[in-house]
Design a protein around this nucleic acid. Structure first.
Length: 288
DNA sequence: AAAGCGGTCAACCGCTTTAGT
DNA sequence: GACTAAAGCGGTTGACCGCTT
């Protein structure tokens, strides 16, 4: 006789910080097989964690493409701006900060920005500017680091002992975070770094990002209470303003995955790794 | 030197939503 | 439509660390 799910004996799950060995197991498994159903991951890996814990560990810490280190001023502006607009929708906010997790943003909000946001009553007007500016800042070649080999990502314990950034927490905020997947670089006529948007963005089919889409249509005003800060795009005009917003693509040369090139919409918020199995060697190239 | 304190962040908890049957 | 499992999400907790007294 089959037991009801509530009557099944519950396996003992380990709790607390993840050990390097656990990280290694999970990372190896997901990179090789994909996560599939998370509840089966502990079974397949032999980890004494529940699936939920594995999922969280992967999303917040092990997943390739995560930025580590301090938030830039521009990222903070984006968080503040979006938080004013949509509140504690951390996952929505995270979609607009590539490489940042909702958990990370939430923690940062509670640690730094809540106080700062409370003090700072002005500023809404600069929201879109900050948002826009952040995209070009992200293209600065000084920011770009290719993803380290998985075994070089510090464990949670190691991070506490030796943070991945060199400047003190309260140091200058112009310090830019590490980017584990290469971002890309384009330059305008003046040699300033700009995102690689242009023609690609003019194609409406590229407006996958919900915020961009909203910003480019009048829906945005309606969606967020009729108050919109920054550039006025309410007439639905996409051409110049929208193109200036951002659009970018990340080209991954997947030598070991079908031998093809993959173009991923960097800002779509898609979980890159859940879409395919990452081979052990993933070459990330700059796409300019 | 050690106790107290506050800040940070990884991880857990519980609720909601979504998908499958 | 009801039920179940999985996934997603936001709030909260607790370990750890550095600073102050």
């Amino acid at each position: 006789m089959a037991l009801k799910s509530s009557e099944r004996p519950k396996p003992k799950h380990r709790k607390g910080l993840w050990s390097p060995e656990e990280d290694q197991r999970l990372r190896n498994y997901v990179l090789k097989h994909g996560h599939g159903c998370w509840s089966s991951v502990p079974i397949n890996t032999g980890l004494q964690r529940n699936g939920k814990s594995c999922r969280l560990r992967w999303i917040n810490y092990l997943r390739p493409g995560l930025k580590r280190g301090m938030f830039t001023v521009e990222e903070e502006e984006i968080i503040l701006s979006l938080h004013r607009l949509i509140g504690n929708k951390w996952s929505q906010i995270a979609k607009h900060l590539p490489g940042r997790t909702d958990n990370e943003i939430k923690n940062h909000w509670h640690s730094y920005l809540k106080k700062r946001g409370a003090n700072k009553t002005e500023s809404s007007s600069s929201s879109l500017d900050a948002y826009h500016h952040a995209q070009s800042q992200c293209t600065n070649s000084d920011n770009v680091e290719s993803s380290p080999p998985p075994d070089q990502i510090p464990t949670s314990k190691e991070r506490k002992e030796k943070p991945s950034f060199d400047l003190p927490r309260d140091g200058p905020r112009s310090f830019l975070p590490k980017v584990f997947f290469a971002e890309w670089l384009n330059q305008d006529d003046q040699g300033n770094d700009v995102p690689n948007y242009g023609a690609a963005f003019d194609d409406r089919s590229n407006l996958q990002d919900p915020l961009v889409h909203d910003l480019c249509t009048s829906d945005f005003r309606n969606s967020y209470g009729g108050e919109y800060v920054g550039n006025d795009l309410s007439n639905g005009s996409v051409s110049a303003s929208a193109s200036d917003m951002y659009s970018s693509q990340l080209k991954l040369e997947m030598d070991q995955v079908s031998g093809g090139d993959y173009y991923l919409d960097y800002f779509s918020g898609d979980d890159i790794c859940s879409q395919f199995n990452m081979g052990s060697d993933v070459n990330v190239t700059m796409y300019t």
